[in-house]
């Protein structure tokens, strides 16, 4: 059998018939060169996916959220410039309300500490909250189902009101073979980056770093942190992670297996 680039590429994507897969697998068995090449292709794919999924961890720009939130009302107005009311009269869909974050923190359990990080530049409008070992997320917590079932890089609205958008960004394993997930909780007005590990059918939050803010009284505008300081998160991940992050496929597999290794 002549192994063309097309066949090899389709083999990688699992897009061949059972017979073709068997034939190619046999060829790969015989040829270390071919095995090497398929491995390189697989790793290239993995690097590419990771490189482009990296943007997922950056909070979605507020301007885009506001634009969507104001639709369709914004389109009905004939005025070229829409005058924004200082006070919102209805709950916005992208209400990443501080309340959502606070609620979430409460959900993490007692004994939490809130400490403004040293990196905060403008304490009048934003506050960085970092907390470690912030609690346990059990099945009664809405976040539990998201961590259990949602693949990385796909978002999930936590409540029916789209109060908070949860986006798992990656899954990794520790030296003790415990699975951990990094995820963000984003509302229009606040955002947290978190790491939780799965211990005995619950998720234990290892760290939660967030930005919240308060409405500036003079014009009702809201200022969120333009970017979060993720160094604390990075440090925790570095400490915990053994090897690479799970690939999308491996992640789906372990979710299907209810996080049990076979």
């Amino acid at each position: 059998m002549i192994i063309t680039d097309e066949l090899l590429s389709a083999y990688l994507d699992g897009e061949l018939s059972v017979e073709e897969i068997a034939e190619i697998a046999a060829e790969i068995e015989k040829s270390p060169e071919l095995a090497n090449r398929i491995e390189i292709m697989r790793l290239n794919d993995k690097s590419i996916a990771q490189a482009y999924h990296s943007i997922d961890s950056k909070p979605m720009p507020d301007s885009i959220m506001t634009m969507l939130e104001d639709f369709p009302e914004s389109q009905k107005k004939a005025l070229p410039f829409r005058k924004k009311s200082s006070f919102r009269t209805e709950a916005p869909i992208w209400q990443m309300a501080m309340a959502a974050t606070i609620l979430l923190f409460i959900g993490f359990g007692a004994g939490r500490t809130l400490m403004p990080a040293n990196t905060t530049k403008d304490t009048a409008s934003e506050q960085v909250i970092a907390q470690q070992n912030s609690g346990i997320i059990g099945p009664e917590n809405a976040l539990y189902a998201v961590l259990e079932n949602q693949p990385s890089a796909s978002s999930f609205a936590l409540s029916a009101n789209n109060d908070a958008i949860i986006t798992p960004s990656m899954t990794f394993r520790t030296n003790e073979n415990i699975y951990c997930r990094e995820y963000s909780v984003t509302t229009q007005k606040s955002s947290t980056q978190n790491v939780a590990c799965r211990v005995e059918n619950t998720w234990v939050v290892k760290i939660s770093v967030g930005t919240t803010g308060k409405v500036l009284p003079e014009d009702g505008t809201y200022q969120t942190a333009s970017q979060m300081d993720n160094s604390a998160i990075t440090a925790v991940i570095k400490e915990l992670m053994a090897g690479d992050a799970l690939s999308a496929d491996d992640e789906v597999k372990i979710i299907k297996q209810n996080w049990q290794q076979k």
């Binding site: 063309t4 680039d5 097309e6 090899l8 590429s9 389709a10 990688l12 994507d13 897009e15 090497n36 090449r37 491995e39 390189i40 292709m41 790793l43 290239n44 794919d45 690097s47 590419i48 394993r173 073979n177 053994a242 090897g243 690479d244």
Partner: peptide, 27 residues
């Protein structure tokens, strides 16, 4: 199929080959 194969081939040539020994280490 053919477009994808060509793209992957091009990427193989553009990217430094990964260090397979390191990458293959189990977790």
């Amino acid at each position: 199929m053919s477009r994808l194969a060509r793209a992957r081939k091009a990427l193989e040539q553009l990217l430094t080959p990964p260090d397979l020994d390191i990458q293959r280490n189990p977790l």
